[in-house]
Design a protein around this nucleic acid. Structure first.
Lengths: 221, 221
DNA sequence: GGAATGACTTGACACTGTCAAGGCTTTCGT
DNA sequence: ACGAAAGCCTTGACAGTGTCAAGTCATTCC
């Protein structure tokens, strides 16, 4: 009857958009396939017809989230020469995607409800990681050729993802006011990323060949 | 009937343990209050009687997770004098809690299904952050008095949480084999934390333009 | 022009969270 | 000591959910 969005788009993409909207609105509790169908103006079994089952739809959203992460990080890194600035731009792009598409970005890491063996999911994830890895390699080349690139890349991605998860708890951490509007929170997070990146870059630039600050537990040299 | 666990513990804690077990086993899909009641050998409405509703039970688990994070980080930092080593020990404790109690640790950050306004939740979170903040302050005192402590603490916590979330994706990142057993994965993650901490400490210690900051290993000589 | 394919609906089933009502046991006041 | 009150838990019911089989209808293909 009253389909909510443009009639031109096909039903699967419409269902994805509606699902992301519902999740962003009410979280994963209160989300249901039937409500998605209701908002899209189709029968309750229509989603099942296109995506098989609930994990099928959520996996599709997760793939889209990972792909978006990939393309926006890649775009953000283009045209920025300095490796440190490029890492900052990518981190900000990551945060921006996570706030602009919360459902898709969160689902990308919800191993318990998606099919992590889907080849499209794997490919999107590895592509995204490839972009980050390239930037860290540039950082290593510019600042410290002996930098353990894999470790540094893991640190960078972990930090970005951690910031997104801890976003609502930044008030605990003296990083702004809890009552800030979402636009301000977004800006505050991009600013935080901009301040955190040099902290990481400094660590990557100055890492001694034999770390002495903490106990080493890596046996192989 | 056939209650599954020790009869000595009271029903609420039994229900929490069973719920955590079910979530760890089958994820949040496939989890239901009724199955928890079934495994505990009580009627289907017993959980509701003690916790009100589903968010009530999940919030209780989240509080327990945050508290565990707090106490284990505090314990890990005790008896370790060097700030860098203490930060490493705390990071490893964080990872250890997240792998030993996956349901509780994950729920601690699932804002969509828990009640984040619960005062016990808030208190536990702020206590945990306080422990981390103290360590970062010690790092600042030892290595770099002008370190922005709040930023550095946010970076440290974000990294720890990010590592936990990305744990299953470490294979993409050249950080070990995807087929490693869970015990090995646990060890690999603690080793990763041990390698990442010096990276962060170096970044916190100072700017790379000052060459002494990059090469020195002892702050006091 | 008939058949076959795909898109979607209808109807059904087992299951879920939540609530009201009731029973049973323990505790408490007097 | 004895009735009342309070807690703990069960039973029963209701609306809502995911999923599957069967059916309807238009399009496409030969």
């Amino acid at each position: 009857m009253t389909r909510v969005a443009a009639e031109t788009t096909d039903l699967p993409t419409l269902l994805c958009d509606v699902a992301a909207e519902v999740i962003a609105e009410k979280g994963f509790g209160g989300f249901s396939l039937r409500e998605v169908a209701r908002r899209a103006g189709v029968s309750h079994a229509a989603p099942g017809h296109h995506f098989g089952d609930l994990p099928g739809l959520l996996t599709e959203l997760a793939i889209q989230g990972m792909q978006r992460l990939h393309v926006e990080m890649a775009e953000a890194s283009q045209g920025v020469d300095d490796p440190a600035e490029r890492l900052t731009a990518m981190g900000q792009a990551y945060v921006r995607v996570a706030t602009a598409h919360p459902a898709r970005a969160e689902l990308a890491w919800r191993n318990d409800v998606i099919d992590t063996d889907d080849p499209r999911y794997l490919e999107a994830g590895q592509s995204a990681y490839g972009v980050l890895h390239a930037v860290i390699e540039a950082v290593a080349e510019a600042y410290n050729p002996s930098l353990p690139v894999n470790d540094a890349a893991a640190l960078a991605w972990s930090s970005m993802q951690g910031i997104v998860v801890l976003r609502s708890k930044l008030a605990w951490m003296g990083e702004g006011d809890p009552s800030t509007a979402s636009d301000d929170l977004n800006q505050a997070m991009e600013a935080l990323v901009a301040r955190l990146t040099p902290l990481m870059i400094n660590g990557m630039a100055g890492v001694p060949s034999a770390p002495s600050a903490a106990t080493r537990s890596e046996p192989t040299g």
